[in-house]
Write a protein that binds this DNA or RNA. Structure first.
Lengths: 213, 213
DNA sequence: TCCTGTGAACAACTTCACAGCG
DNA sequence: CGCTGTGAAGTTGTTCACAGGA
């Protein structure tokens, strides 16, 4: 299994490829649990809902991982993708906003390896003090202290829209580098931080458009 | 003799455009609430986190909506996008899986117009009978009856992976045309139905990759 | 002046088709 | 034979740059 040097290729890797690698990983882990020692691209394609040639193309950006005529050794491919994504050690994550959506996402990520939720915060006193999924929900005022100590790399935001700017600024200040927000609103994004959005309503309306075509 | 190859465009309108229209809609409604009668592409761009030229490009697929030198009349643009997306009347939606994620998404969509949640179902007896956000959670065995009566167009799935095939087949059978699933697993997708996935973990791992570049 | 609308260029992404190997 | 890996072709998506109008 040969791995190419990435230094010159960094910019040539499509973002869409990275997103899918993560999905492959999830499906490969399920395959491994099922006892599949080897997984072929046609099989993985069915499990991940992408085309088989796309899987092969995605992998060639990083090297040659397969056995011709057979497929990929499940364990090795999992290890290779973990390596590529840089998730060999767990990602430290904090949550801001512990309403129903925040809590649901906490529970969701708890079921997936690679994530270590080291803190959950809310501005609402009602939520605070409570323990959820083994994580104590604290007032947002305590966030800087925890962040300084634990050095989380990423945050998830699920708060009302009007608090978004304030929260993003706070997270940038304490050294968070990436934010996934379920809240969409006008924000000036500080330097050195990446802010991505998940827009569930947009997915729903997009789907509705498609079924009407 | 050289013949120029004609490339017939299958999809005149990019799928990415449709997804964004939905996002524009949400931002335009906020602008309207703020009292902005007119919104320009540079302003909307900031609010939606896309480039201004992309907004203009997206809109030209459907016509000319703007006033040169000014922008777009907020109300008119909202109406136009609603028309394009076909969401002038509310979309009837049912939920399968009312654990924490299902409930969170119910609450999330409740805050957005265009969606009318007409039923929520779960296989787990514990969840049943309960009322959540004004919607009674029923056992999945009652789904066909409700679907026949109410004719929902779309469904949201948030269940454990091993029940996915069964659920998708059931939904197809009762006439659902589009499904948004938070559960990823190998599924044979029935004809005449579109099954899309939301993969939160993939978004997180993608973001992690980006912050490490 | 400022913004819209748009041809043309550019960039990103996906599929095709097949050589080559186990 | 079945699958991988990949050049080439095809498709989709985004930005540039600017004419033209309010």
């Amino acid at each position: 299994m040969k791995v190419k040097t990435l230094t010159l290729k960094k910019n040539l890797i499509p973002e869409a490829t990275i997103r899918r690698l993560s999905t492959y990983l999830r499906c490969l882990r399920i395959s491994l649990e099922k006892g599949d020692d080897i997984v072929s691209s046609p099989l993985l394609a069915k499990r991940c809902h992408v085309s088989e040639s796309l899987i092969r193309r995605d992998l060639t950006y990083f090297g040659e991982f397969g056995i011709k005529g057979k497929g990929y050794k499940t364990k090795e491919l999992i290890a290779a993708i973990e390596q590529i994504l840089g998730i060999h050690s767990p990602i430290k994550v904090i949550f801001v906003g512990c309403g129903s959506l925040g809590r649901a996402v906490i529970r969701h990520l708890k079921n997936i390896p690679y994530f270590n939720i080291i803190g959950a915060f809310d501005k609402n006193a009602e939520q605070c003090g409570e323990e959820f999924e083994g994580i104590k929900i604290q007032h947002t005022s305590r966030l800087p202290e925890v962040a300084m100590r634990e050095k989380p790399q990423m945050a998830v935001i699920a708060i009302p829209p009007d608090g978004l700017q304030e929260t993003v600024d706070l997270l940038a200040k304490v050294g968070i580098k990436g934010i996934l927000s379920f809240t969409l609103s006008q924000v000036k994004v500080p330097e050195n931080i990446i802010l991505n959005f998940v827009d569930i309503a947009a997915e729903m309306e997009f789907l509705f458009y498609k079924i009407n075509q």
